[in-house]
Design a binder for these strands. Structure first.
Lengths: 163, 163
DNA sequence: TTAGATGCAAAGACTTTGCGCACTT
DNA sequence: AAGTGCGCAAAGTCTTTGCATCTAA
């Protein structure tokens, strides 16, 4: 997998502001009759601060950076709980591990198959497709899980230069 | 995972006929300077006969049904080779294992998150989205890897009845 | 003949689970 | 005090790899 120096900017114009604060997450946890723990608070902080998507491993490393005693299995369990509570969603982007992110802000993913970078885009892009699929097949598109593979502008131009 | 009695029909109207015969696959293998073996022929047969997508495990079982001596690792290697040769493509649909299918016929996937059934649909549905993404983000959509999650018509009506 | 393909088994990557102690409420 | 949540370690699933043997060309 490539590491990417250049980063796409996240197109957030027109997106509702997520308002995903740590406190908000934790009160959702309380509302779900679960307990608020240090590990959960730390996972919440990591998710809020990393605006993008993270693999479980990345979440774990970031959490352990602050709380070295939190185990990977706990992170798995917390993310599973957060998903039940609709705090996060996860998607399988490339071939490998699942990526998680806060559900509030996210609409769709575009993943570049060359450099592996993923950008998030507003849901509006899927309106037409969603209506089309609904009408044609009765299929109700899940906006939280839309993940499109392809080639980003940068890698397309690199390919052109090398060919 | 649920097993589904009812099956969606595959919407193939308007799709170019794949012409994916076993012979065609094997000549692609020869063209790629690879050898044609019993295992490869059997994998090719399985892929041609199963018009839909299959997990590696399903391919392996179907192959072993005819050639019990073919090992799973060989199936992985053959599918990897077939993918290099553009004979098949694979996608990660749900959470679990990758699914493979012949590249000729396939355009996009709609996977139901409830019953887990996947239907294939013509590429035309992604034309508008593809142009939009190209124009807005310079992103070139990969038609072979489009996988959309959501809820199928059947499971939507079931949910309505149960709620 | 001989380089590529395979079978077997082990290793790897990612994720889940059982159990007893710790911590939240 | 009561019961959820956690760390640890083991197990599970899916996939890859090393190596000796076999086989297509």
């Amino acid at each position: 997998m490539h590491t990417l120096a250049f980063q796409w900017r996240t197109y957030s114009e027109g997106m509702a502001d997520p308002q995903n604060s740590v406190d908000e997450i934790l009160s959702t946890v309380r509302g779900g009759a679960r307990r608020v723990t240090v590990a959960k608070r730390t996972v919440a902080e990591v998710l809020v601060e990393a605006s993008g998507h993270l693999t479980v491993d990345e979440v774990t490393l970031a959490v352990q950076d602050r709380r070295p005693d939190v185990s990977p299995s706990t992170v798995y369990r917390i993310l599973e709980e957060f998903e039940e509570l609709k705090i996060v969603v996860h998607t399988h982007l490339g071939q490998s591990a699942a990526v998680y992110h806060l559900s509030g802000a996210v609409h769709g993913h575009l993943t570049c198959e060359v450099c592996n970078y993923t950008m998030q885009i507003p849901a509006a892009h899927f309106d037409v497709l969603g209506k089309d699929l609904q009408k044609t097949y009765g299929f109700l598109l899940d906006r939280h899980h839309v993940a499109i593979s392809g080639t980003c502008a940068h890698c397309q131009s690199v390919r052109r230069h090398n060919t």
